[in-house]
Design a protein around this nucleic acid. Sequence first.
DNA 1: TAGGCCATCTGGTCCT
DNA 2: AGGACCAGATGGCCTA
Length: 187
Amino acid sequence: MKTKNRPPRRRAPPQDTEATPGDRTQDRPQPGSGPELTKGLRSRTARAQGARAEGGRRRPGSSGPGGRRESSVQRRLESNERERQRMHKLNNAFQALREVIPHVRADKKLSKIETLTLAKNYIKSLTATILTMSSGRLPGLDGPGPKLYQHYQQQQVAGGALGATEAQPEGHLQKYSTQIHSFREGS
DNA sequence: TAGGCCATCTGGTCCT
DNA sequence: AGGACCAGATGGCCTA
């Protein structure tokens, strides 16, 4: 994996909604099915593809020769702004997550997929550690340890996530450790 | 230069 | 009805 410590980028200033710079819709295949199909019959993705195929990101002709109505453009811009804010919040959450996941190279910013993957395995390793410790200290019938452990094992089996390495609590820790190192190596 | 990652735009769908 | 959510498209930046 490559190192990426770039300053936050700002994309080109918001374009007007009617202009279509870089629009390659003409290169894309024509729709095989139109939007007239009922929504229950097509998957979300298929519907989106159909819509896109007929105009891609934008529909140049959708507003007639004079372009979209001003109110429509205004609504779109507001929607864009909300979406931007939503993504910013999502990125803030990613950043917060990065800050609580221990990893080897603190100077290297984890990508989103790395963050999620590491977090998942970190949680697993912590869970395994807790279970190991609690089952050791609470051998009695009334303690939460055994129940917790049983529940955990059921979850693992139900999720089909019980690989050879993960069958034992130490497996999670090992996997997490391996992953940290692979990220460090820049894979 | 190719490929990875990302921000943004966009239209469709879901939810309140 | 309006906002949130989602996923595809697009283009910019960066590194190997």
